[in-house]
Design a protein around this nucleic acid. Sequence first.
DNA 1: ATTTGTGAAACCGTTCACAGCA
DNA 2: TGCTGTGAACGGTTTCACAAAT
Lengths: 233, 233
Amino acid sequence: MATPRLRIRKLSEPTISRLPVYQRIVESFRRRGITRIESSQIAQLTGVTATTVRRDLSGLGPLGTRGAGYDVDVLDQKIGEALGHDRTYSVVVVGMGNLGQALVNSSNFLIRGASLSALYDADPAVVGREIAGHVVRDINDPMIEATVGVICTPPSAAQEVADKLVAANVHAILNFAPTVVNVPIGVAVHYVDFSIELQILVFHLLNTMNFAGGILHSVGVTAQGQPDARAVD
Amino acid sequence: MATPRLRIRKLSEPTISRLPVYQRIVESFRRRGITRIESSQIAQLTGVTATTVRRDLSGLGPLGTRGAGYDVDVLDQKIGEALGHDRTYSVVVVGMGNLGQALVNSSNFLIRGASLSALYDADPAVVGREIAGHVVRDINDPMIEATVGVICTPPSAAQEVADKLVAANVHAILNFAPTVVNVPIGVAVHYVDFSIELQILVFHLLNTMNFAGGILHSVGVTAQGQPDARAVD
DNA sequence: ATTTGTGAAACCGTTCACAGCA
DNA sequence: TGCTGTGAACGGTTTCACAAAT
């Protein structure tokens, strides 16, 4: 039973997307043996304002010390709790092309409660091979149940794969194929589209060359903030 | 000399991130020979409201016809103009691991004005190989000038690569390494972090299982809208 | 003295409701 | 009639300014 689970009331969408970034910074401080961190330091490194950082963190309960900043260990743990890192969940990845391999071999993808359940591919040359400690299964084999499914197939196969994932009781899908997939109500789909990321970046480049701050993932652009890169790894 | 460039005044950040999605839908209509499209159809397929679609598009000037919807050709072209697709720009990709290969081999990444200039890697076993029609260069070779640089290296190398890119006059960086990089003012950095995407998805799964709509890349979750997946490819 | 935490104001984007046109 | 385009209302997030705490 451990700690009684304090239900976090209302974390806004923008806050949720920033918390993982904060946590990465906090952990890099921790690894370097620094025990305290200030909102202004997180702000500097992420490009958001210190006020926003404090407002975000205040949603997790009062965890800073006025005058001194936040305790790095406490902050790391509290953010982790808020994001549900104490819960584990299973992941299946479909499509073992370069992208699928990049994901499962990355030391940065399946972290914080995620555990890889199975890999699938349609290519007979790939099925049976061992990747990241898992034998790649045939997409036509019965699909293992999992919490999250990751689609790394060509777009033409994405819908079919999504259907299979839903049938295997998957509740959330991370879709790297540039296609909209149709799923029942209650299944979350999150899209990642490299081409669109690039287009957004280029738009900014061509138009507004004068924008400030914001090195956050997904909308980040550095400017005056001059974050100290070496501070984060 | 061509069309006089109408400077687009103010396109909001959310609008900019939706336009590429709209365009993808418009083009799928076009490929199927459909000549008109309504805001409600785009809305259905993206999960945003029809009003938002119209509001977004109205920023590009009046291009619809009241009573009938939008002309597919005109809309495609206008969105392309707004996003700067009539301008070409060059891209260098650094790091030819699985991710780098996935990107340059994808038919969906380098589109709309992007042209690949050069590939780089640090691994002698990879340098000299031909990938996507380009011989992979050594990261220590002089770097070709380009508009955009893409970092697909391990995080430990990201800062060094960013420095080299900046020295090669790159003005925008798409960083797939989970690290903050330090660049001079005027250089845009956009971060893509798979782990964070996954964490955000799982947060939603664990907490609010009751949220509506929004199948857009980056914050998308399907629900009642029931977009017809087959309509887009 | 310094930094957190937070009401209140300002700002921005979305939605509503409807006018404008084909 | 049907759908676009948009002023106005709304809701939510960020920023300001300052009180609270050590």
